[in-house]
Amino acid sequence: MKKKEIKNGALAYQNYKFLIENNIINSNNRIPDESIQPASIDLRLGNFAYRVSSSFLTINKTVEDRIKNFIIDKIDISQGHLFKKNQIYIVEVQESLNLDSKLSGKCNPKSSTGRLDILSRVISDYSSEYEVIKPGYKGKIYLEITSKTFNIVFTEGDKLSQLRLRKNNIVTTNDRELIGLHKLSPLLYNKNHKAIKPLINNGLKITAAVFNDDEPIAYKAKKDSPEIFFNKLRFHNKKDYWVSINKTKKNSLIIEPNEFYILKSKEKIKISRNLAAEMIPYDSEIGEFRAHYAGFFDPGFGNEMKGSHAVLEIKTYEVPFAVEDGQIIARLIFEKLAEEPTKIYGEGIKSNYQNQGLALSKHFRV
């Protein structure tokens, strides 16, 4: 391996390029540059899926060994295959790892995956946790995929999840540092592009927007809708899949159990070029619901237009839950990068959700 010292912290675009060039991140198929994001790398589906009877982890075994205990079907997805909702599938991704002991990783679904209510989580060999790549991991990576709302056709090469590597321990910003960062360059703006005071307490608090005179305040997924082709962008008619919800008299929205909603944040968020942010998907202090599958904001998010709204995927499982306009609904934790990326979100890389409002996934026609 070429000698190059990667600094502590979350890896940036150029660090991933280096790891690929030195076979620390491997693939039998060339990894295209568009798979490398400012602070993560996309994971591409391989050509076979396994429909299984149960989710599982791999505490003392490989994923391959565990699949043998639960397999129902082995499916060729090279030309596309329909993944039926609420069925569990395991797919080996095209990328594999050969990490040293100082490198570890965290994974999460991509934004478009979360906005379709797809549970996509990484499994690795000999691991007791989803979405975690242990220090020094060497081996294959798999996705467990369950579409919760829609029947979806997936094809070899589709990108559902992303991998974020870091050197040594995670380096997060504390509340005092966040306050200082906001003074230097505001983290939050209102709809009129004016900087607003952030609510910072164990991270940056984000509130829900459920009041708008001119546009829908939310989308609610329809129960019975046509199949979705994951590799067809701007293709599907949103009216076939979503119900638009307009403002209510009480400026609140009742989230019904086991229904899937898309909302947006009241604030517009800006992530500086040397940071990334993760949204905590479930926080019992905020409410008994899950907000946001994807939960990852690249460096440069919202930089071009004084912030972009966060889009929130919302579900509640037990009882109806009322979300008020301006109610705290999520929390952002900021992570320091090893170095500033040479590729930034939105700057000439065709980022799909820069300057977004209440936005469905890129699969739907506007």
Rank of each mutant, 00 (worst) to 15 (best):
I71C: 00
Y13H: 11
P38T: 01
G203H: 13
H363G: 09
S361R: 04
K223Y: 12
V91K: 06
F150G: 03
R164N: 06
N28M: 01
L119A: 10
I75N: 00
K17Q: 13
N212F: 09
I118M: 05
G326D: 01
N22E: 14
G302F: 07
H236R: 02
Y142R: 09
Y317W: 15
E335L: 13
K197N: 15
D213V: 04
E313F: 12
M1L: 12
R365G: 09
F334W: 03
D125C: 06
N174Y: 02
D283K: 10
Y282L: 07
E347Q: 08
L116S: 03
H236D: 01
D240C: 04
N190D: 15
R121V: 04
D214S: 12
S124P: 01
K247L: 12
F229C: 06
Q79L: 15
L337F: 03
A291E: 14
I24V: 14
N212W: 10
I72F: 07
C107M: 12
N192A: 10
G157H: 04
I254H: 14
F83L: 13
K350Q: 11
N352F: 15
L143G: 00
I71F: 01
T207K: 06
N168F: 11
G326S: 02
K238G: 03
S112D: 15
K140V: 07
I280K: 15
P32E: 13
N231M: 01
P38L: 06
T207D: 01
A276T: 15
K194L: 14
K148F: 04
V122P: 05
E227R: 10
I254E: 15
